[in-house]
Design a protein around this nucleic acid. Structure first.
Lengths: 223, 223, 223, 223
DNA sequence: TATGAATGAGCCTTCATTCAT
DNA sequence: GATGAATGAAGGCTCATTCAT
């Protein structure tokens, strides 16, 4: 039986790679030393390819030419590596949808469209890290999981509010706000399941597409 | 959302349970003995809660009051338990979207709506098994993975074709068929991430909702 | 990694095989039912090919189209199957070297030659069972092992006595009796390591050869 | 003969032992770290006593006060421990019979005598490792088995050639070369079955004895 | 900072054996 | 007599983690 560890999503060596498949390094906190950042990046790829539990500390550190023990110089446990990744990803996603330039948009439709577009774009641009954020929550300890849930709720609320505003003021059709906003989030999130950077969709194009589709979901049909 | 991690999955006797959380038992192949079916059902729950790699054979069999060795009376390996589940789920999903009563629908819009509704309903009804089908593919061996991929392609094609028909005959707006059909699939699939049977949405209601939303995505706006 | 259970010494199915590779069935005790005898024969082949510990009860019974449980109808344990084989083999070997027609030989040289020849012939004829007798003693329990040792001692004594007789009466050179008789036994025993029935040596020819060599070891050189 | 079964192999610390039962440590490859060498030595004893399959990785490492996992720091599998042992043993045996000082012997009889003596001495001196080399071949994978077979063939050829030379030039009686050389090898090999260092035979004495016996097998009888 | 060596805990899997049928 | 189902007890091997260096 072949090792089930084969990476479905091939990632080249980190070394010497001029351009990364995703831009996850941009997510890591400022204070972290370079090796720590590289470890997070390597971990993201491993977790995304094989899942948290199927990834060994040797996988993560080995991709950088380091020994497994090196990981413990920067992180106290494998779980905390996961937590760092998931927290960073969720934090940034929240920042993206609460960015001042988006909140400043007066027009209700354009506001919603911009929200969905930005959210989608974020997930596409960071699809590897985002995949981990969405699919590896079960690897977190209870406490860490709760902490992440809290951020998710706040993020979700942003969408619900934006939609509610348009429904309330009559701009949008009188849709079921929680359910429809949930569907809009699905458009933005589900792409981490299939998105590849080498495909024909740029993060921007995908953001535009989903923004359109979301608006179509709630547009009032002139009778 | 209840915490789906940490505490190992524990379930009361399957036998005693009058109503199951999902209806996955209906998915298992005919020939299989009862104990084998129960093992699959137990495995589905464990995999859905904790992931394939974090689930032990003891978790699966223990939930039925059996020893780990009992699993090997019915399946040659843990991986094959996963494969059986994922194959059954995918097979049935394909059957659902190729059901004669759906294919018989003449009206293009109603056809698409029925497709999305049925697909959504299926995922909601079998959300536990469907979650495994969508998120645990990395646990499969290369060969088994390929086999599943093949079924997925056929399923996806059904949606693409249905949408293309409406675009071609002018019923729908001239949307980008592959991308938009992908978005429609997202609506149906992403719910496995969050759906709970105890929530306020029945599978039927959710199917109706997604059917509506999908049609709204492609409806022609009268100028 | 390939299963290390591959049988080095291929044995055809017992069913329908007109002629057996060795004649071990002839060794089994009279009272035993046919199925029991077949189980012993199958076990001999498995043990000889793969060793006692690497042989499963399923291997033994499966070769006869039976389930593992069938073995326990005839034998109380796997170890006792081994013991039965080893005891039968050793008993018969002792019988061979204490056969009246050999003991009746007056001539000292011819007596020794006949002894070595018969012993060699026996091991060649039953080389599969004899291999188990020589190499799988470690699989026996302490008590059973002691019981076998006792038979071996008696067998060995026969050779030592025959040689001593010739040395004492001056027929043979004044060799070191225990050491040289041990060497003669080596000739007879070691063949179980390499003997194949399909080779060019018949048991009789091999017996003759070893009888000759043994005599050459002790012949007096006329000055 | 001490009971070599039942009670799992237990040895005092290898370190503390001033003199080992056999000299197998001398067989291990140069590059190996001390712990690795000790593991091989411990494994040899376990395999010799109980057989490969009846020996656990805990037996091997436990004798050194190490955990089972320690073995995997030095060897990738239990089978490879066996292979390393068997390869080292066979390699050295070949070196012994192809040593320059033996090949340099002009006299045909003395050459053969020296060959048999050296071969015997080697097996006696390393009787524990040699036992494993002769009796545990079935524990090897197919590939490793083939590799060993190749060395054995070369070793055997040395004896056949030495004997053939004497037969051809008339020094020896016109014996059947393959069969008689096989018998000579039996004298050297079979001792691993019964040799104990505490017995009254030193390796040198045994070598001398077998050298004599071998020559007696082929000496020309003056008519 | 980085690691080689070591391990405790645990996992998947096997298997001799039992027993109700 | 024969077996299918089940299991207790391992066994080989892995891995997150530690620690002396």
């Amino acid at each position: 039986m072949a090792k089930p560890r084969q990476a479905r999503f091939t990632t080249a060596d980190l070394e010497g790679l001029p351009e990364l498949d995703d831009e996850s390094p941009a997510l890591w906190p400022e204070g972290l030393p370079d090796v720590g950042r590289n470890l997070l990046t390597s971990a993201v790829r491993c977790f995304a390819s094989n899942g948290f539990h199927a990834t060994t500390t040797r996988d993560i550190s080995g991709a950088l030419g380091l020994s497994p023990a090196a990981l413990y110089v920067y992180f106290p446990s494998k779980e905390l590596v996961l937590f760092e990744i998931i927290r960073a990803g969720h934090q940034r996603a929240l920042e993206v949808v609460t960015a001042p330039d988006i909140e400043a948009i007066e027009d209700v439709s354009e506001h919603l469209r911009a929200l969905i577009a930005a959210y989608t774009e974020f997930h596409a641009r960071h699809h590897v890290a985002a995949r981990v954020c969405q699919y590896e929550l079960a690897g977190l300890t209870g406490e860490h999981y709760e902490e992440i849930l809290e951020i998710r709720h706040r993020t979700n609320a942003v969408f619900r509010d934006a939609l509610a505003r348009g429904v309330d003021d009559g701009t949008f059709a009188p849709v079921d706000v929680p359910r429809v906003s949930r569907a809009m989030l699905s458009l933005g999130i589900d792409l981490v399941r299939w998105y590849r950077r080498d495909g024909s969709d740029s993060p921007e194009q995908l953001g535009e597409l989903n923004g359109d589709l979301a608006l179509r979901m709630v547009v009032r049909h002139p009778e």
